[in-house]
Design a binder for these strands. Structure first.
Length: 418
RNA sequence: GUGGGUGUAGCUCAGCUGGCAGAGCGCCAGGUUGUGGUCCUGGAUGUCGUGGGUUCAAGUCCCAUCACUCACCCCA
């Protein structure tokens, strides 16, 4: 019997896994500095939260959810995205009764039942941030700037920001109707024709060349925005410019979740294969009410951790990192191992990163291991040293070696490494 | 759901019109009775994805099947 990770999933292994941790940290750091508090919600929720929140017409809900029945007969679903859960938690705990906006960030695993391909997995990882309860273009701009700063802090140069406005419940219906009129006149396959009736904006997203060619003259949302939406969008654009964040207006940008209104954006990168979005988000003014909460105009984003690592690889930012211990201890013989083990523990308690040779290997093999560990110093303890009450401290970069009394090793190494 | 590609050592892969299972890297050991990163020597690891067929003979040809992968669809 042998096992392998389920289709569409993968394991993060060292040393590459270090970058996943680093990316998670770097993408969330700007939000933490901007007053966003940490929220952690369950990995599964009531199925209806997603079908009503994300939208019955979306692909996510119609064919990509991991839905199962609990022993009590309740329908539960592994979360396919984070926003619905956060809004649910805010409503459930009445957080909207306090100071607004409520600013939250989170990080975790998400699940969508899709055919895997480069950059697209059934289990993936996102960092998210949401600001709930305020309708202020500065809040939209803040979130976008925070995400852009996160990517920039990782050294990414080729992340582009696409920006659009999808209008609101006042102006979207008219646009939707105009778009449907246009699309119905095109030569399209059956599934796409169905999409025109259910979710016409999504058709603008089609990548097939024969479809793209026909979409050239399609009506654009930006030409159908009401006065309020137009003004709001202009304000967001102005603030982004003022903060020095470059963006491209993309009137074709639509997103796969139904709850978006007004500001929508996507961060894209060309080095990921067919998947180009490394992050995205937007405003969702009606979501709270859709799932039974009070009016709570909000905006947020989710950034893909796995995809960001792929983007960094594409830009050559992922380099082999040297090992991460400072000291590597080598006992020669059992007596030496018994003596060096507590010394290793003591060094670690003193704040040094320390590893040691296990498995009773010879000096040569142990030295090889010390070299691979990336340690600056090797500690060698053998019979002769035990008799002398000292340990050999070898600087692996210069090959200088000196005997240091056992009682003084901790202080000496702390001094050398500070 | 649809279409393409690939399955051979831990990893990356070579293996021609069928004829003894290979290389590089990595790993382990020795060269150095207690010293790494270079060098030299040696060693271990294989159900050639799986099942069937053709053949004196199959990693190689045929059929089926599974897995992985890329792309469409969709999205982080």
């Amino acid at each position: 019997m042998s096992f392998q990770a389920p289709k569409g999933t993968f394991d993060w292994l060292p040393p590459r896994s270090e970058w996943a941790l680093l990316v998670r940290d770097a993408l969330s750091a700007p939000a933490r500095r901007a007053g966003y508090g940490y929220i952690e919600t369950p990995a599964f929720e009531d199925t209806a939260l997603f079908s009503r929140g994300v939208g019955e017409s979306t692909d996510i809900v119609t064919k990509e959810m991991y839905t199962f029945e609990s022993r009590g007969g309740q329908s539960l679903t592994l979360r396919p995205e984070g926003t619905a859960s956060v809004v649910r938690a805010v409503i459930e705990h009445g957080l909207y009764g306090g100071a607004l906006p409520i600013k939250l960030w989170y990080s975790g695993s998400y699940f969508r039942y899709e055919r895997a391909q480069a950059g697209r997995y059934r289990h993936f990882s996102q960092v998210g941030a949401e600001a709930l309860g305020a309708e202020d273009p500065a809040l939209d701009a803040e979130l976008i700037v925070l995400a852009a700063d996160g990517y920039a802090s990782l050294g990414l140069k080729n992340v582009r920001l696409l920006l659009n406005s999808l209008g609101c419940k006042e102006c979207r219906p008219a646009y939707r109707a105009a778009l449907q009129d246009f699309l119905r006149g095109l030569d399209l396959d059956e599934t796409t024709r169905q999409r025109i009736e259910i979710n016409p904006l999504r058709v603008l997203d089609d990548k097939r060349p024969e479809v793209r060619a026909q979409l050239v003259g399609a009506p654009l949302v930006t030409d159908h925005l009401c006065g309020a939406c137009k003004a709001y969008h202009e304000e967001v654009r102005g603030l982004l410019g003022a903060a020095g964040v470059a963006y491209t207006d993309d009137p074709r940008l639509v997103r796969g979740l139904d709850y978006y209104t007004r500001t929508t954006f996507e961060f894209v990168h060309d080095g990921l294969g067919a998947q180009s979005a490394v992050g995205g988000g937007g405003r969702y003014d009606g979501l709270s009410e859709m799932i039974g909460g009070p009016p709570l105009p909000s905006v947020g984003w989710a950034l893909g951790v796995d995809r960001t690592v792929l983007a960094m690889e594409a830009e050559g930012l992922i380099t082999e990192r040297a090992g991460h211990v400072d000291v590597f201890a080598i006992p020669l013989g059992e007596e030496a191992r018994r003596r060096i083990f507590p010394l290793v523990s003591e060094l670690r308690r003193a704040g040094l990163a320390v590893d040691m040779a296990f498995g009773g290997r010879g000096v040569k093999g142990a030295m090889k291991a010390a070299d691979r560990s990336g340690a600056r110093y090797a500690l060698i303890l053998g019979e002769r040293d035990l008799e002398a009450g000292a340990v050999q401290v070898k600087d692996l970069t210069t090959a200088d070696q000196t005997a240091v009394p056992l009682a003084e090793v901790v202080e000496v190494l702390k001094g050398k490494l500070s």
